[in-house]
């Protein structure tokens, strides 16, 4: 009956998305490395048959993917990405990049306390779709929301995207604190300040403060603290066990956006005159300029 739903990216999340889509409809998964399954293709033009297309690639790959995809898109396509990254020194959100570099205007972001396995296996869970276009949220719900997956939506796309990126950063610290058994009270202070910092950055970029204390911000962070053991948390834990960044990354087993945005967020904050000490300290710690312990001490004493 309806058009197939596209997925760009054959990573863990992309494949989970395809599994969820296939429960009730048709999916086309575009992956450079291809795959055995019938719905996997290496031909990008196949995606033009879709109306809704998910982008499940790291933000650093978004420009290349957008370029490859653009000639096969027009105004009917709805693009939804799941990236936790921000692009370039001006911290462009992924949806903004897509809007400015492809024919698609109806774009959005899927974020919040999502966990890949939860929705491929239809376990209870939820998330949020950030989009200005109600039909984008409707299409996402129709494609992946099972009986137990609750999807909210928000018009504040920038807020949702920045919240998602910044929570990635905070989840990394949460992993570190959990592994080191940092007292819950200290950790709560860190996380609350982290959300406030995220909100400052988000508002400067055009988002709304309330979004950061909703599903996309605190909702997402609760899941990380509640033990979803997402990749960022695992990375933080590995760093806490004194692994170097590369080894820790291997152990976490996924590409982690938080590492790349910390420095850019810190630099942006300085440039536009807002305070973002947590991003700054995280950047220095990840670059090996200070230990994470010193960083935490510095933040708590500040």
């Amino acid at each position: 009956m309806s058009a197939p739903v596209g997925v760009v990216g054959g990573g863990r999340f992309g494949r989970s998305l395809a599994t969820a889509i296939l429960r009730s409809g048709d999916a086309i998964l575009w992956s450079r490395s291809g795959g055995e399954e019938a719905h996997v293709t290496t031909e990008v033009k196949e995606l033009s048959r879709c109306e809704l297309i998910f982008l499940s690639v790291p933000s650093t790959h978004v420009p290349a993917v957008a370029k490859a995809l653009a000639p096969h898109l027009d105004g009917r396509h709805l693009l939804v990405h799941v990236s936790r990254g921000l692009i370039g020194d001006d911290l462009w959100t992924v949806s903004r990049h897509l809007r400015h570099n492809t024919p698609a205007r109806r774009v959005g972001c899927l974020a919040g306390p999502l966990d890949a396995e939860a929705f491929s296996e239809d376990r209870p869970g939820g998330g949020i779709v950030g989009t200005q276009f109600p039909e984008v949220a409707d299409a996402v719900r129709a494609a992946i929301a099972g009986a137990s997956l609750r999807l909210y939506d928000s018009r504040d796309v920038v807020g949702v995207e920045v919240a998602s990126a910044m929570v990635g950063l905070l989840a990394l610290q949460a992993g570190f604190c959990l592994e080191r058994h940092i007292p819950p009270s200290a950790m709560a202070v860190m996380m609350s300040r982290g959300l406030a910092e995220a909100a400052r950055v988000g508002v400067k970029l055009g988002g709304e403060e309330a979004t950061f204390y909703g599903m996309a911000g605190s909702g997402d962070l609760f899941a990380a603290l509640g033990g979803d053991e997402r990749a960022e948390v695992r990375l933080g834990r590995a760093l806490a066990r004194k692994l170097d960044l590369e080894a820790a990354g291997r152990e976490a087993g996924a590409y982690i956006e938080g590492v790349t945005i910390a420095r850019r967020v810190a630099a942006y904050a300085e440039r536009v005159g807002i305070e973002a000490p947590i991003a700054a300290v995280t950047a220095r710690a990840l670059d090996g300029e200070m230990s994470i312990e010193d960083g935490l001490r510095y933040l708590m004493e500040r």
Binding site: S2, A70, D74, T102, R106, F133, E135
Partner: peptide, 28 residues
């Protein structure tokens, strides 16, 4: 469109393969 693709502007008001009216969409 950005990137140099020629597009049919009509497709921007399509949904499920046909043009439709939608005030929220147009506001966005």
């Amino acid at each position: 469109a950005p990137g140099g693709t020629v597009v049919d502007p009509g497709t921007y008001v399509w949904r499920h393969g046909a043009p439709v009216l939608d005030a929220h969409r147009d506001a966005a």
